[in-house]
Every structure is written in structure tokens, then in C-alpha cells.
Amino acid sequence: MPVIVARDLTKVYGDNRAVDGIDFEIARGESFGLLGPNGAGKSTTMRMIGGTLQRTGGSMLVAGLDPAERGPEVRAHLGVVPQQDNLDEELSVRDNLIMYGRYFGLPYSYLRAKADELLEFAQLTDRGKAKVGSLSGGMKRRLTIARSLVNEPKVLLLDEPTTGLDPQARHVLWDRLFRLKEVGVTLVVTTHFMDEAEQLCDRLVVIDRGRIMAEGTPRQLIRQHSTREVLELRFGADRNAAVVAQVEDIGSRIEVLPDRVLIYTDDGEGALEAVTTRGLSPVTSLVRRSSLEDVFLRLTGRSLID
């Protein structure tokens, strides 16, 4: 029995169809991703799951309840990590956890111990009395995630959890999310980072302009929509387009981006050899495995991060 079911979900702002009739099901304990560029409709979808945004059409059930009809009850089961931190700047770090628990109607006797546990989880034990404003971006993000766990949610909604963090802070966060996954929390993650989607998601949908373009595990999506390897060539900004004619037939497909040429092939090294035997000398060349970025490029003709 899926924990979240959306059917023909639609949100229209004026004449903009932000979410344009999407369907998905998320199983209990699953880690589900919504991958797409900014403005694809990911956050809008997340807010409709929590019932904090009214949908225009379609249906939605979370733990068997309609969030538009029973918002407070539905959210009792949810942990929400919004795209922008909305910590309470007027309270201390620890009080942020405790007051948030009070909003769920939880008793102080439970919350005092829980706050200590969550401070440890967020590696903020020594900052409990500090004001939120004094925390770094990574610390705030960890606190926001810790806060979302205060009601021991069945489902955690993470909207762009690591945007704006440095690489080290991202890895710390991913580690925390893996631990939650291990204990059976259902994760719903939106991201425009393909590596994040590959790291965190068992299954994902690729969204663009409010519509689902593809669905599957990261591996399935790559297999279906891309080749095993990719050869990336840089000839310099003005030459990239000019050499395309000479390498067009090498791989099974070719993409020309402003800064590089991508040749899709199952044998990257072989393709690179073919390029050099034709007398072409790229400034740099790289053979790598296909990623979700390539899937997205294939499906939409655009890159994820503009």
C-alpha cells in the first residue's frame, strides 16, 4: 500500500500550469526523487503533498488522507524541509526544536529528551543555547532537518536539501539522510543535482515544465535514455560547433553544448581514439559514465543547471 498517491495532480497560477497533470505513487520506506530544473514544479508538488498549497485539480492521498481536507492530520505524519530555511530567528537553537514539537502538540517531557537527541544528530550539541542567526549555512540546514524529525515522521519531504552548501557540508547531510533511510523513513527529495538524485533516490521522476518526462531507478533511466559512456570534448568556445561535422558519426548520438561536445557511445576510449586519428586535437577530453544529467539533456534538450 503506497504512502503517497497523486493522480492527475495540477496547479495553475493564472495561465501558468506549474504542475500539469502528474501521477506518481510512493511506497513506504522508499526514497523517491523529483529531478528537474528550477521552476519545473517540484516545490509546488511538495507543498501540495503537505496541504499547505491548494491544488487546482487531480487527487492526492497521503497515508490515506487528503491533505487539502485534513491538512493538520496529514502533516502530523510528515517532516518538512523547505527549500529556504525558515527557522525561528527569535528563538535559540534548542528552543527551535522544542517549540516546533509543541506545534505538533507534543509534551515537554518528550521534547526535552528529543531535543538533545536531535542536537546530537545535527552535530549541534554545543550550540543549543546559540541564536539561530549565528549558525553557518550548513548548520542551519542540519538544524532544519533535525527539526523536521521532532515528530518522528513516517515521510520526510526534502526540498532541495543541499542547495547552497559546500561539498563537505553536503556529504555530512547525505550521511544523515542515509541513516534515516536505514531506519525505514520514506524520503521524498526534490533536487536539480544529478549526483544527489543518484546518491539518495531508489526511484525518481524527471520533471520539466510541470510534466513527468520519465520514471525509473537512476540506473534504469540511464540505460533507457543514454549510452554506457560519454566522451566529453572541449575544443574552445568558438571551435566546438565547427568540428561537429567531423565527429558526428563516431558515437550513437552527439550533443553540442556551449562549452563542450558530448559524444554518446558504449566505448568512450575507442571514440576518443577515433577522434584523434582524424587529426583533431581537443583542448581537453574526458571519458565518463553516463549520468542523470545526460538523461535530462536527452529528454528535454536542455541542461539541468542553466
Partner: peptide, 10 residues
Amino acid sequence: RLYQAMLQTS
């Protein structure tokens, strides 16, 4: 965004 945070809860 205080109310946004409050409305994420029950």
C-alpha cells in the same frame, strides 16, 4: 517565513 514553518506542522 514564521507562519510557513508553523503550517508545516499539525
